[in-house]
Nucleic acid binder design. Sequence first.
DNA 1: CGACTTTCGCCACTTGCTGT
DNA 2: ACAGCAAGTGGCGAAAGTCG
Length: 332
Amino acid sequence: MMNMGLYQKFPAEEAMLTDFKGYLINTLQVTNYQQVIDNVSRTLRYIQPSGDKVTLDFLLKSTETKDFLTQLRHADMGPATILNYIKNMIRFVQYLKTHLNLVAADPDFYRKCQAYIDHLTFLRKPVSKSNSKVTCKIRYDWFIEGEKSLRECQAVLRKAKKDMLSVYGRMLEGDHVASEEKTIFRYYCEAILILGHFLRPGAVEGLTISEWDERKNSGGKVCVAVSEHKTAMLDAYYTWIRPECIRSGVEHGNRLFVSTLGTKIRSATNDLCRLHFHLIFLPHCSYKLPNIKSQQVRRTVETDAAANLTEEQKASVAHYMAHSTAVANTTE
DNA sequence: CGACTTTCGCCACTTGCTGT
DNA sequence: ACAGCAAGTGGCGAAAGTCG
């Protein structure tokens, strides 16, 4: 499935694509430009299978363009993904239109670009339709199978609590704590923020020590289901575990969560997953809990809030959740 | 008809999975 | 562990309904 010739790309240093990249970065300030470039590069590569340079012939190859999108569908890609490819191509051609020297070389250039964009827009319509259907079905399925309750989502926190308190106690007493236990403890702290505070993984990864201090002292208390002892757990991590992970010469960007190698953590999602997995090995918990993703808790909280809270409380939750994402957007 | 509300379509960005 | 990719999320403006 992987190799239907859909993953070939132009060399990274290809001139036109490099220009486009610069435009995305400098003019449009697009942060995730790499995926845009990759998508465009693959599309063009399919249309023009040979040569190291992109030629403008693709503007006239509407059939090949359509074929490529059909191939993507045959490779079982979702409409959302195909939509992204189309969008990225439109942006690329829109950018080409601004190149005055290309217009000079071909007086018909502008019209060709526009025709190509129109064609893409036309091809996009049915894809967009089926994307709506997919979204609709997903929502419907959630509705049918029912949301997991907040309690179910947070089960992993309760299951691990006893062991984590034991680690906590030993750290408090200055007893020995194995490094593996410390890592699990870090996972647990991340889980508190994701499942208890409803932070996004990106927000957890980006959280800095100064942000943590602020949050601890002012905000944070607004929300349901976060008890004092959990704040204490995070403080314990901050006080006894984090300092041991800091290495001189290794950049940690003042992040609250630091891996054992001293770098900032890369994937809070992954850490949460490992915490779920780890519970298999706890003596009093021999079965595996379903792995709850951050998106699921956030969904649950939002539906719970919609159903059970007063307007004022809803506003408070909405504000809190918004803040949870804000952290992700303002860091890095 | 215009004001007002709801739904749709798209975009920017994020999350999460997978193969190496 | 990480790069590379697919797909989900939330917000926002445009389009489509709906009512006086």
